[in-house]
């Protein structure tokens, strides 16, 4: 149920909006990229909290280990790449539109 809300519904909404020909404006794409980047950084940072909390709780005697921030960041960068693609495509389109002669 919750997986459907978190993953399937937003994906299907995105697919349907793309299929219906909805275009992201340059401003929308930049905002989206900013939101994705912020959330990626936040998730990377928050992902290390548990490790730090356990180390603190044991007064440094127990280090539970776990992935470093770089290792946590890699899969998040992979799931974020579509926004880079969207941004790149839009900027190419934007440049092409600008270079078109007015008459």
């Amino acid at each position: 149920m919750l997986e459907t809300l978190l993953f399937l519904l937003p994906s299907i909404t995105g697919i349907r909006q793309a299929r219906s020909g909805r275009r992201l404006g340059m401003r929308g794409a930049i905002l989206l990229a900013f939101a994705v980047a912020t959330l990626t950084v936040l998730v990377t940072w928050i992902g290390g909290w548990r490790q730090i909390a356990l180390e603190k709780w044991s007064e440094g005697k127990w280090n539970p280990g776990g992935p470093s921030w770089q290792e946590r960041l890699v899969p998040l960068v992979v799931v974020s790449w579509p926004v880079v693609y969207l941004l790149a495509m839009l900027s190419v389109q934007h440049r092409a539109d600008k270079s078109k002669p007015l008459i």
């Binding site: 519904l9 937003p10 994906s11 995105g14 793309a18 992201l24 989206l32 579509p82 926004v83």
Partner: peptide
């Protein structure tokens, strides 16, 4: 998920 779906 939304961005992935949109790009897909």
């Amino acid at each position: 998920s939304w961005v992935g779906g949109f790009a897909l």
